[in-house]
Amino acid sequence: MALVSVEHLTRIFDVSKPWLNRMIERRKKAFLTAVSDVSFEIEEKTVYSLVGESGSGKSTIGKMLVGLLPPSDGSVKIRDINLARETDAAKVDAVRADIQMIFQDPFASLNPRWRVRDIIVEPVAARGGETKGLAEKLLEQVGLSARDAGKFPHEFSGGQRQRICIARALASEPRLIVCDEPTSALDVSVQAQVLNLMSDLKDDLGLTYLFISHDLTVVQHISDRVGVLYLGRLVEEATPEELFDNPKHPYTQMLLAAAPKLGEFGREVPPPVGEIPDPINPPSGCAYHPRCPLANGRCKAERPQMRALRGAKVACHLAT
């Protein structure tokens, strides 16, 4: 059984202006569909990556997974327990202790007024657990010194702060860690340190990651399975090898072609056309059809469903 199973997950935000403005300007209520009918499963002890550009809904999915946002429709089940619906407090608490999150901004994710020790043990202390020596042990586990426990966050560099965030995430001995762009605020050399640390911890502690990123090379490096999101919809899902060697969805192909490549000096490729459409008024049918070189009448009218195709899953009428 998969550790996480996401079914038909949808999240709609009300982005209307206040009532009075709507009355005066004669506007209707506006809704933004950040995530639309997304389903996937994460197997225990694997890394599942969600990759997409801004507005693809990848962070929203992460927040729904950890319970920071309730889904508008569909469900997230972790060990077969639906956090949003479950009424048994003991079960909810047990699942919550199993999930942790690492955030993007290492400067905003640590309370500047707390000592590192208190920050790290908070997930345990909040549940009344034993915390003596825990912070020191975890700090050494993530490659910092036990002496750092008494310092304040501002004394650390970005990479070190991200290590502290990882230590905090590990404190409650979780099984699943949702990593929302954990390295995109870091420099390349520091990013390598953090990625290596994350894969070591995964192997040592048997962790499962949901890895959210816009960086294709990082995703390719770390994942066991990758889901590509476009405008809140999952368009392709495959192993990284299959996805990067043999992308099937036109959007994935475009994304891979556009990503800068280290080895190709002075590469001249026709840049991608168009931009991500307004998510408040998404295109009909397949959301990618206005930018897609292959699109036909069916793409405009009918939204493609996920289908299996040569070792991958793809939501495209035309991919072969």
Binding site: V188, S189, Q191, A192, F244, L262, G263
Partner: peptide
Amino acid sequence: LMGSTPLASRGKDRLHQIPGA
């Protein structure tokens, strides 16, 4: 710096890392 950059050709091996900051 070059070694730290994840690359398709390098596969899933550990990234080369520059210690420290």
